[in-house]
Design a protein around this nucleic acid. Sequence first.
DNA 1: ATAAACCCTAAAGTCAACTACAGAGTCAAG
DNA 2: CTTGACTCTGTAGTTGACTTTAGGGTTTAT
Lengths: 145, 145
Amino acid sequence: MPAQTIGHVAKASGTPIETIRFYEREGLLPEAPRTMSGYRLYDESTVKRLRFIARAKALGFTLAEIRDLLALQDNPASNKTGRAEVKAITERKLDDIEHKIADLQRMQKVLSHLAHECSGKGGVAHCPIIETLSGIEDCTHPEHR
Amino acid sequence: MPAQTIGHVAKASGTPIETIRFYEREGLLPEAPRTMSGYRLYDESTVKRLRFIARAKALGFTLAEIRDLLALQDNPASNKTGRAEVKAITERKLDDIEHKIADLQRMQKVLSHLAHECSGKGGVAHCPIIETLSGIEDCTHPEHR
DNA sequence: ATAAACCCTAAAGTCAACTACAGAGTCAAG
DNA sequence: CTTGACTCTGTAGTTGACTTTAGGGTTTAT
């Protein structure tokens, strides 16, 4: 196993050096072995682990969730029931994401409606966007619901 | 105009007292007039303003954007061209939201695929979720793209 | 008259996920 | 043997939208 310094791992994984040290502090990476002079030494598995973290982040997992996923992966005891937990974490995240999408779609609906209603010309006085945010019931076009 | 203390406004608007003071510091609310002893005094318009803020927040506007919207509403000079700016802010926000939705839908797609692939039974060893996050090319079902 | 309930300020803390110092030691090349 | 690139630790700063704390005045009800 050829040992690499933190800078090499940073380049190979695309993760900044500071972030690698941060992940170690946060328990996403094990404490690295050191040279006599205190430099951290890594092997290829660390690069893979950092790529795992990057992919999981891209899917919306938080660092806390990723830490749990990695712990399951690391723990030999999780070779009995681990998959259920992994699936549970994934499904919770899926649920989160579906809620967020639903929220955003509600916002989108209202905003695109407002953007269409507003001519963009003239003063703010009877701007339908401002009026809606102000909670005015009787807009100039009260036919909507 | 019956003047109310901050506590009444908090109750009437559903905004915590501390948050009202925070909004004043941040320029979303004008500085309130005070009693001789330094208590802030508000009238109904503040309650309306706080409701405006709450609605705008619910639609995903940041406090900075809300401040801009309120400034346009307040500024008599904006009664010439203000509506264009209001519409621009709204459309930028709509754009943001559409991007966020697209991102989340990409995550959702991958995660729901993973959740279906994984039985949830057994150890973490060949869990398809873990394997995908680990970047393994040849899954047991490599037919997907 | 005193206690409960309310208000004030300024400053610090919270969360997430980094990012950026400052100050010092180490290693490879010329 | 010195310069420059690299690494170390520990601490502090960033963003957004608050929340909390400490320490003190004020008002209202009994």
